[in-house]
Design a protein around this nucleic acid. Sequence first.
DNA 1: ACAGTGAGTTCAGATTTCAAACTCTATGGA
DNA 2: TCCATAGAGTTTGAAATCTGAACTCACTGT
Lengths: 164, 164
Amino acid sequence: MTTPRPCSIADTLSVVGEKYSLLVLREVFFGVRRFNDMARNIGAPRDVLTARLHHLVEAGVLEKIPYNERPPRFEYGLTTAGRELQPVLLTLLQWGDRHLADRPPVVFEHSCGTDLDSIVVCRHCGAEATPASLTPRFQAQGWNAAGAAELRAAEEIRTFYRGE
Amino acid sequence: MTTPRPCSIADTLSVVGEKYSLLVLREVFFGVRRFNDMARNIGAPRDVLTARLHHLVEAGVLEKIPYNERPPRFEYGLTTAGRELQPVLLTLLQWGDRHLADRPPVVFEHSCGTDLDSIVVCRHCGAEATPASLTPRFQAQGWNAAGAAELRAAEEIRTFYRGE
DNA sequence: ACAGTGAGTTCAGATTTCAAACTCTATGGA
DNA sequence: TCCATAGAGTTTGAAATCTGAACTCACTGT
């Protein structure tokens, strides 16, 4: 079989997985909405930024908002779908803060008054979504947990899945 | 200024932001730990996969675990740091499920018995970390919310930040 | 002895990225 | 009017990366 695994992670990455795409979204979340400011803050080549903005607009993550008629000038704002990418940025930020930064360059103060330390939880029960608490169920034909190692016992798969 | 913004998101992406890197981690979370299985499930060229695995091992996200001496053969397992990337994958998955898939190819059953619908919350107070509930504080010199638009009033910046 | 497997490596060609320069429209000042 | 500046790109040619196919090397199983 040479078709890759059907997967929403891969699908999402086809929208925001190119180099600089998520940094563009970071800037928009920070309130930076114009081409030159983005280019400077991200450090991306201008033609690449042009391509990424087009792609993100086409994918419905950003929208162009005119702020000047002549010459035509646009800002880039988040759509609802774009706003829902915030958790992705927060989890990336959190991992970098923990594992790569001695002192985080940006801290988010949550409305409860503390500096944000975020976790991913189950909306239904509120408990943290840890690897061990999750069992994948494959809905696509022919794709089970372990790919080629289809013969492994389910329990073993679960152990592997937990990353142990 | 031509230096990009100092940022943990960008730092994290320098570890897992290359094409296929996050899909490699997805496979390991699914229990797929060997080269050929990964190559097939991801659909990546073999030399690219080799490079990504090296990079992820070097970054301390994966570790090589020998399972055969001659010829030398290794599996790739998650380190603690690697396991902590799970929230990134979950948030990407969730966005794809919501916005790109009609029927998610994989569903995670949480230990509470429901199919996982995840949210990112503040560990301290438990409330969801929405854009509107967060105020960024910049700890690096010279970097404020709006980049070049340093003159914007703080309130305006906050509004922009919310993506409105 | 011979086919098959696992994990790469090598290679030529296609695609992207990069940084700098250039374009086009418009505004502000001397 | 003339000149400088700004914003948002587009163009360019060289450098880096990605792609798919073929090849290597060390075994294993029959």
